[in-house]
């Protein structure tokens, strides 16, 4: 698949996880906010879905998600700091 498609799919993971991370920081100082708790749960569900879709096509985002088949998938390019 094209690099542009990969970037697009990764962007979905990044934006969903960003929402979750920002809500997490908010919840750290507002631990009793039910609205934020509900939104956090929704954000995490969305992020998990996009992450699974991405990993099915482009490989693992964490070493634990690497497949057991050789060669070891985790090391494969691109790494995040590479432009492509």
């Amino acid at each position: 698949m094209e690099t542009a498609d990969r970037n697009e799919m990764l962007k979905k993971v990044q934006s969903a996880e960003f929402v979750a991370y920002d809500l997490m920081l908010y919840l750290d100082t507002h631990p009793n906010c039910q609205t934020a708790l509900t939104k956090f749960k929704e954000a995490v569900e969305k992020a998990t879905k996009y992450r699974k879709e991405f990993e099915a096509v482009y490989g693992p985002l964490t070493a634990c998600a690497s497949s057991s088949a050789a060669p070891w998938q985790w090391i494969q390019d691109p790494w995040p700091w590479n432009r492509k």
């Binding site: 990764l10 962007k11 990044q14 960003f18 991370y21 985002l61 964490t62 070493a63 985790w74 432009r83």
Partner: peptide, 15 residues
């Protein structure tokens, strides 16, 4: 910490 193989925000600098 466990590494996530992605940036928090995309960076694609052409020039």
């Amino acid at each position: 910490w466990m590494y996530e193989k992605k940036l928090e925000y995309p960076i694609k600098i052409k020039n």
